[in-house]
């Protein structure tokens, strides 16, 4: 459920980035304060462990299929919420950079969906109270199962919301939700199984390992920062989206505003108008376009669609040109 850049709008991507960045900053401060610099190599190596553990599958009883560890919950159990959130963020970043597994602007969404819910909801509010001290194996097993399922359900619902808000995919909210939740119920069960299997082994083989690694940070989370975080996201996403919808600025101004700050927005809009004027003057065929077959949908975007034959020819040509430029550049480079 790593979201790609292709499916989200800059508004949603930006808002989720802000939310995740805020939470990362908070966790970074928390971890730094609690340090115990032992956590520095421990967090790094455990992140690498998550990658490595995903190379090993296990067979899911009575199904004939197999699954592997996702990692969010086990990291929270081992490291506590704050450090676990940082580790999950680093794992997702490496996946995005090296495997294009999840986009770069979508990374904010992904960190939130796969990090926040297991580390700050499922672990402190479900796993900890249910598992108790962890000495009762049956309780710990149920706790991990419920926590994993809830964490993934929340994450999946989050994916659906973000995708729907972005409006790139045509999937309606309810359909997408009905598609995602059952799939993630299964994934959650697998995650719960894998987490319990590993934790149960460690609890038997070396119980102090479970105590030690997370001992540096308080293992419980007070609800306040979590609620504040959720509230912040709601305000951010709601605010940005409504602002986006009400002013209807072109996406570019919006992204310029995001990069350079509010002050540039006016200038950006002005620039756009200027450019539009120039465009009108120099356009080869200002009113050129095919008739739109759906006048009731004659929005800006469908209007553009009307000009598509020329666009198609031009698009293919530009692609070829871009390829040619690339080819030429690489030739020149090799010749140098």
């Amino acid at each position: 459920m790593h979201m790609a850049d292709a499916l989200i709008s800059p508004a949603v991507g930006g808002a989720m980035w802000a939310a995740s960045a805020g939470l990362l900053g908070y966790c970074g401060r928390k971890v730094r304060l609690a340090l115990d610099d032992r956590l520095v190599p421990m967090m790094g190596v455990l992140g690498a462990f998550i990658f490595a553990a995903q190379m090993i599958n296990f067979s899911i009883p009575a199904t004939g299929s197999s699954g592997h560890l996702g990692g969010g919950l086990i990291l929270a159990i081992l490291l506590g919420p704050e450090a676990a959130f940082l580790v999950i963020a680093s794992v997702l970043t490496v996946q995005a950079l090296f495997f294009a597994d999840g986009g770069l602007l979508a990374l904010g969404c992904n960190i939130w969906n796969l990090g926040f819910y297991p580390a700050f909801i499922a672990y402190p509010f479900i796993y900890r109270p249910l598992a108790g001290g962890g000495s009762n194996r049956k309780r710990a097993w149920i706790a991990a199962m419920v926590a994993a399922v809830v964490g993934l359900q929340l994450g999946a619902a989050s994916v659906v919301l973000e995708t729907t808000w972005s409006g790139i995919s045509a999937l309606p909210f309810a359909t997408f939700l009905l598609l995602m939740q059952p799939i993630h119920l299964a994934i959650g069960v697998v995650e719960g199984l894998a987490t319990t299997a590993v934790i149960a082994f460690v609890a038997r083989a070396r119980p102090e390992a479970l105590e030690m690694s997370g001992g540096a940070l308080a293992k419980s989370v007070s609800p306040r920062p979590v609620l504040t975080g959720l509230l912040l996201v709601t305000v951010l996403v709601g605010g940005v989206l409504s602002w986006f919808a009400s002013t209807q600025p072109d996406g570019l101004e919006w992204s310029i505003a995001k990069v350079t700050g509010q002050g540039e927005v006016e200038a950006g809009a002005g620039l756009h108008e200027e450019l539009a004027k120039i465009q009108e003057k120099t356009a080869f065929l200002p009113d050129y376009g095919f008739k739109t077959a759906a006048p009731e949908k004659a929005t800006d975007s469908t209007g553009r669609v009307g000009r598509t034959v020329a666009g198609l020819v031009g698009g293919l040509l530009v692609l070829a040109l871009a390829g040619l430029v690339g080819y030429g550049l690489s030739k020149r480079r090799r010749a140098v």
């Binding site: 800059p10 991507g13 992204s255 871009a322 550049l329």
Partner: peptide
């Protein structure tokens, strides 16, 4: 990435010039 993402959902042709960027980087 932000610029590419900012296009409306039905946009096709206007996206093609953006291929120049990855092409040029890979080539260089």
């Amino acid at each position: 990435i932000a610029t590419v993402m900012s296009f409306p959902r039905y946009e096709l042709s206007a996206l093609t010039p953006f291929f120049l960027y990855p092409f040029a980087l890979v080539a260089l």
